[in-house]
Write a protein that binds this DNA or RNA. Structure first.
Lengths: 188, 188
DNA sequence: GCGCCCATGTAACTAGTTACATGATTCA
DNA sequence: TGAATCATGTAACTAGTTACATGGGCGC
């Protein structure tokens, strides 16, 4: 393959669970992997079209009474094949761009109180996301996709990453707030 | 400001430490915040030009014997002003795209051994980055920028995030490898 | 009647990466 | 002599976001 477009593998992977429309894909992604992956319609629809041209998916139209018709996409054998090739290929170096840390790095330019507020908001956001992870956990547990038996619980392994991550963030925020607050008290 | 280009704030922030060339900026970024932020030349040079047009930085040419000349950029009062405005503004929602988790989420499509290898590599990468963080720590500690006294140690707070993060990743990898290995043994 | 959800899609844009071109110096 | 570092920059590209357009159904 000439180049790598990760979105296309994300969509193929989701379609390996079950045939879906672009709209369904967005919802499914938001309700399962949103804490580490996101897609938007402006990207999903063009990529689906491209996947269809490449014969990695097929489209059929589902007519529903009372609702708009849907374009349902199914993964093909070729699609499964490129997907599993990608799974076996090395992971690209992950590039993080954490705006909160960038601001904190330049924090000496501003009031300590400003940075305290940023970190406090960051902590609240992490706590909220952690709660949402539990919703996702429920969602995964109540869905019975007839996943192959004797396979590891991959979805739960991913979820576990999220739990570790957000708990770590909360812990770091607490530590950081302690240091910032102490510095602020000293300034007065 | 009409739109947000985070790179321009990253560059302005770095220039608030000291005047630098585009080349210096890249090196400085790589040696201080690379574990949570990165920039490349193809982006740095055009953004510097834009910042100069907007009068957020000024350029002067430094002639060096035996070496090519450098364009040294300094932040202006206006530049400092937009930078501190940005510091006070809310942090954008951080969007994570973790390819390792995306692959793991579709791991049931492939051999357990394939996923074990991915996680093992991920662990090794995290261990390597953690070691690099200690180098950065040394670099920060040995640089004496005459940072304002009675300010919190912002650089160390950022670094501490990195330590927490990569230790968490290593822990999660260990847990995950345990589960995958057990599943693999059961399959045989 | 209003707002929300369902459903698909495009256009315009911003952001960011990769590859390339240039040319000098230093070091092995 | 060849590789690495210093130093700047552009062109072509890929990726991803935002805003907009359309239109029906449902619940309050």
């Amino acid at each position: 393959m000439a180049h790598i477009n990760t979105t296309q593998y994300a969509l193929l992977g989701m379609l390996s669970y079950m045939p879906m429309s672009g709209y369904d894909l967005k919802k499914f992604i938001d309700q399962s992997i949103s804490f580490f992956w996101s897609e938007n319609y402006g990207h999903i629809y063009p990529v689906l079209k491209k996947l269809e041209q490449e014969k990695f998916v097929t489209k059929r139209v589902e007519h529903n009474q009372g609702k708009p018709s849907k374009n349902i996409y199914s993964i093909t054998q070729e699609g499964l094949s490129v997907l599993t090739d990608w799974l076996a290929a090395p992971v690209q170096k992950e590039i993080y761009r954490l705006e909160i840390l960038l601001k904190l790095f330049f924090g000496y330019l501003t009031e300590t109180g400003t940075m305290i507020e940023k970190v406090a908001v960051h902590k609240k956001t992490a706590e909220k996301t952690l709660r949402e992870l539990l919703d996702i956990e429920n969602h995964i547990n109540t869905q019975h996709h007839d996943l192959p038996k004797n396979k590891p619980p991959y979805q739960l392994l991913c979820l576990n990453y999220g739990k570790h991550f957000y708990n770590m963030v909360i812990k770091w925020c607490d530590e950081t707030l302690g240091i910032l607050q102490a510095a602020k008290n000293n300034q007065q």
